Simulated scan of single mutants.
Amino acid sequence: MPTGAALGRAGQKAKELSVWTAKPLPPGTSRHWVMMETELTESEAREVYTLDIWDDSGSRRVSIGHVAFP
């Protein structure tokens, strides 16, 4: 179950995100909704980020690069 997330850029401190999911992610599942929320200024929203998501133990972590906002 994802319990934490951060949005970061190289050389800058990552912004912690609020994370919500309806239920734990079943093993082997290829699709599932996880919602995250943060606040960005207009100039921050133009940047490209890396999204890190992790569980309570911190041992299961997913990083997604090249995250951009429309």
Rank of each mutant, 00 (worst) to 15 (best):
V48C: 02
D55S: 08
A5M: 09
D56P: 04
G28L: 11
G8L: 02
S18N: 11
S30W: 05
P70S: 15
R46T: 15
T50L: 00
R60I: 06
E44W: 04
I53T: 08
A22W: 07
M35S: 13
V67M: 04
P26I: 05
W20S: 13
G65Y: 04
M35K: 09
R31K: 10
W33R: 10
T50R: 01
V19L: 08
M1K: 10
S63C: 06
T41L: 06
E37I: 09
P70C: 12
E39V: 11
F69N: 13
L7K: 00
S63K: 08
G8F: 02
P70D: 15
G65Q: 11
V19E: 03
G11L: 08
W54I: 03
K13Y: 05
K23C: 09
H66K: 13
P70G: 15
E47M: 07
E39K: 06
V19N: 03
P24R: 05
D52P: 00
M36Q: 08
G8R: 01
W54F: 06
V48R: 01
M36A: 12
A45E: 11
A10S: 15
K13I: 12
T29L: 07
G28M: 07
P26G: 05
S59P: 01
M36C: 14
S43G: 07
R61Q: 13
R60E: 11
L25H: 07
G8C: 05
W54D: 03
L40W: 06
G4D: 15
R61E: 11
P26S: 13
S43Y: 07
A6C: 15
H32Y: 11
E44R: 04
T3K: 13
E16N: 11
K13E: 15
T38I: 09
I53G: 02
A10Y: 05
S63F: 03
M36F: 10
L17I: 06
G28C: 08
G11F: 05
R31I: 12
I64F: 05
V19P: 01
P24I: 04
G58H: 07
T29R: 05
Y49M: 00
W20M: 11
P2C: 07
A22V: 13
R61F: 03
D55N: 14
P26M: 06
L7P: 00
I64G: 04
E37W: 06
K15A: 06
P27D: 04
G8Y: 00
H32V: 12
S43N: 09
R9V: 00
A68E: 13
G28K: 08
V48D: 01
P27M: 02
G28P: 04
G4K: 08
E16G: 08
Y49C: 00
P27L: 03
T41C: 05
Y49Q: 00
D56R: 11
G58E: 10
R9P: 01
T3C: 10
L40P: 07
W33Q: 12
P2D: 02
A14G: 02
R61I: 15
A6W: 02
A68Q: 14
L51P: 01
G11E: 07
